[in-house]
């Protein structure tokens, strides 16, 4: 079930556009933020609200790399290895995360806490090497900083999970 707050947000966003279907991607992003992924129910609901067929919503999901149909880890670690980060050790950071978490690109830990992704330029080039955990930026990374952050997220995650 989508929350009432999310439904109210949907209404507000759709009203901004002269054409309702313009809201598809923003609605998918906000639904995903709440549910953790894009569910069948979210697709049906969005299609109904913007007056398109569900297949048209699914077409968009396939195009945009941030939208996904399966749950990711609670903390999705996205490491940039593009050129500015590459020159500052971005690949080492990715390998370090991979070893530390025991998972590879686009995999999730068995406890559902972490997933890992090698991503393209995040726009944090002057703070390379950089990564995002969900929407939060972490810059000027070192293996030590990664260790500290993962420990912190592990304890935060354990606290908040039921």
């Amino acid at each position: 079930m989508l929350s009432d707050a999310l439904k109210a947000k949907f209404d507000k966003i759709i009203a901004r556009y002269p054409l309702k279907r313009s809201a598809i991607v923003p609605l998918l992003m906000f639904a995903q933020d709440e549910i953790g992924y894009v569910s069948d129910e979210a697709i049906e609901e969005i299609a109904r609200r913007v007056e398109v067929r569900p297949i048209e919503v699914i077409e968009d999901i396939g195009y945009y790399s941030m939208l996904h149909r399966q749950p990711l880890g609670k903390y999705n670690i996205q490491v940039c290895t593009n050129v500015s980060c590459l020159l500052r050790g971005g690949e080492e950071i990715l390998e370090h995360c991979s070893k530390k978490l025991g998972i590879g690109h686009k995999q999730t830990t068995p406890d559902g806490l972490f997933s890992l992704e090698e991503v393209e330029c995040l726009g944090a080039c002057c703070g390379a090497p950089a990564m995002q955990v969900n929407y939060d930026f972490y810059e000027n990374l070192t293996p030590q900083k990664i260790d500290a952050l993962i420990e912190k997220l592990r304890s935060d995650g354990a606290k908040k999970s039921p």
Partner: peptide
């Protein structure tokens, strides 16, 4: 939609 690798000025 700033995403050209090496660019982080619009931020």
């Amino acid at each position: 939609d700033e995403s050209e690798p090496g660019t982080c000025k619009d931020r």
